[in-house]
Design a protein around this nucleic acid. Sequence first.
DNA 1: CCTTGACTTGAATCGCGCTTCAAGTCGCAG
DNA 2: CTGCGACTTGAAGCGCGATTCAAGTCAAGG
Lengths: 135, 135
Amino acid sequence: MTEALLDIAEVAGRSGLAPSALRFYEKKGLIAPAGRNGLRRTYRPDVLDRLALISCARTAGFTVAEIGRFLVATPGDTDLRARMAVKARELEEDIARLTRMRDGLRHAAACAHETLVECPDFKRAFAAPAQPVPR
Amino acid sequence: MTEALLDIAEVAGRSGLAPSALRFYEKKGLIAPAGRNGLRRTYRPDVLDRLALISCARTAGFTVAEIGRFLVATPGDTDLRARMAVKARELEEDIARLTRMRDGLRHAAACAHETLVECPDFKRAFAAPAQPVPR
DNA sequence: CCTTGACTTGAATCGCGCTTCAAGTCGCAG
DNA sequence: CTGCGACTTGAAGCGCGATTCAAGTCAAGG
C-alpha cells in the first residue's frame, strides 16, 4: 500500500482519457489530485470510478458543468434531486428517440428504395413530435 | 395547388428550425430549395419530412456530415449500408448507456449518501467497460 | 552535475453546429 | 415611384469540449 497513489499518466492510461482531459476536468472542478510528486499530479485510485462516471455522463449528453453540479450533490439538496428527476425523464425521451433511430437504420440497411428519403417505412420512423402545428 | 411551395419562413416555423439553420443545412447539402421567389427560397412541402428526419438524426448524435452521406444513399451503396449497420450497433450501446444513466439518476434522486460519488449503488451503475485493462 | 524526458502551466487553437451581423436586394402596399 | 420589411449574402462570432503548443520544472540516472 505504499504505492497507493496513481500518476497522471497511469490514470490517463487506465481511464482511456487524455492527460489534457484530466487537467481540463480538474479546472472544471470534476476531479482533484490527491497530491503531487514534484509537479506531477497523483491520484487516489478511486478517481477511476469517478472518471468512469464522468465519461458515462458525458456520453449520455450531460455537459461538464452539469456533471460538476451533480458530483457535489448532498442528500439535502432537493433542488438538485429535482433536476436529476427531470434529467431522468429527458433520458427516457432520448432513449425512445435513439431506439426509433436504431430501428430506422436497421431497416434502411436492408430496404431497397432509391434514396432513404423515399422509403416510406424509414420516414415513418421519424414522425417527429417536434412541432405538431395542426394548421 | 397553386400555392404548393412554402416560403422559408413558413418552413422555419413548421419545422421549428431557424432560417439560418435551413441555410446552413443547404450549404452542407442536406436540403435544397425548390426554387426562388425573388431572392426568397421556396421549398416543396416534403422538405418538412426531410427536416424531421434530420432533426431526429441530429438529436440521435449524428453529425451533419454523416446525415448528408446517409441522405444520398442508394440501394447499391453497400458501403453506406455497412456504415448504417455499424451505427445501429453503436446506437444499441448508447441506448444501454443511457438506460444505465437513467436508472442511476432515478436512484440518485432517492438515495441518501453524502455525495453521489459515495453511493455504492450509484457507482455500480457505471462499471463502465471503457478500458478493462486487467493489469 | 547535467542530461533526459515526462510532466507542468496558461494560452491559443480546433471542430462542430449554428447564430449573429452588416450590407444589400427584392416584392408589394400605398 | 417610394418606402417598408422580410428576406438575401458571406463572414465573423459563440459555446462547448477538449487538444495542442511553447516554455518551464522536476526526479532520476549516468
